[in-house]
Design a binder for these strands. Structure first.
Lengths: 145, 145
DNA sequence: ATATATCATACTAATTTGCTAGGAATTCTT
DNA sequence: AAGAATTCCTAGCAAATTAGTATGATATAT
């Protein structure tokens, strides 16, 4: 039930892009430096996000990445799903219904469904705009302090 | 963000014990057979639950396991925590606050806190009694059909 | 041209997961 | 007293996953 670094790094990079939305492109090098993580690794993650249609890129000098939609139109669920393959706790509860012969009679299924429901709720209703707003106001507060 | 077999098998075994609460002891062999999984593996899991104080045991012939408290007094969160070490999505959000230097300034932290909060909500308020009740009424329904 | 980027792919070390195996200790039954 | 049934304890291991490295090709602004 752990969240991998893929999800964590990826989400943070996307929030970074969201806070700078409208200000041009940002390179992987810049994003990686901001988080203090490996460029090559983050590059892989962003590449996945690009294939998922969540970011746009431009190659060559002065190139980089930017969000492909308004921050308010990108949910964190989409991002995690792209990075981690799925946001399902277990196969037999997700949209695919795989991996389980006794799904209909499983004594634990109601619990998993409830839990997954709460998770999806948060992931689907929280957007990058929400996160960027939170972050900016928090930054302002600490500036004043 | 996946739930391991440890958590799944363990929870199901505990629900089995809950539905039989008050009817004596049940052996690992019986519990494993009910789920159709390896005895030796489930044995390990139950042993962890015992160390966590969630089940009682009696050794020797006719021995086995039973819940050490009323089903209504055992939350699924306790069980998962015992089996998986923790129910935290990431270290820097749990009760221990480890693993993260910039917790105070992390742009993703509000999201993780919210998500973890919803998860804990379900895990802490759902008891074995709830699950056993759900299961039994479901069984009755399918008997009639 | 050259420096700066993305893009693509392959490899690898460490960790975690999901078991299996073997035997010791305890208790009921006969 | 013997044997069967059971928990208890520990070690080992194969497969999968995670968390990266490494290398080089391709595209583009200056």
């Amino acid at each position: 039930m752990k969240l991998s670094t893929r999800g964590r790094y990826g989400i943070k990079a996307m929030v970074d892009l969201a806070t700078e939305y409208g200000n041009g492109m940002f390179s992987v090098a810049a994003l990686a430096a901001r988080q203090g993580i490996s460029e090559a690794y983050l590059e892989q993650l962003i590449s996945v996000l690009k294939k998922a249609g969540l970011v746009e890129s431009s190659r060559g000098a002065q190139g980089g990445y930017s969000l492909s939609r308004y921050p308010a139109d990108i949910s964190v669920g989409e991002i995690l799903k792209a990075l981690e393959g799925s946001t399902d706790l277990i196969g037999c509860v997700g949209s695919k219904r795989v991996n389980c012969e006794n799904a209909c009679t499983c004594s634990a299924r109601p619990l998993w469904l409830k839990l997954q429901g709460r998770i999806n709720d948060v992931l689907n209703t929280t957007t990058l705009a929400d996160m960027a707003d939170d972050y900016i106001t928090q930054q302002n507060r600490s500036d004043k302090a």
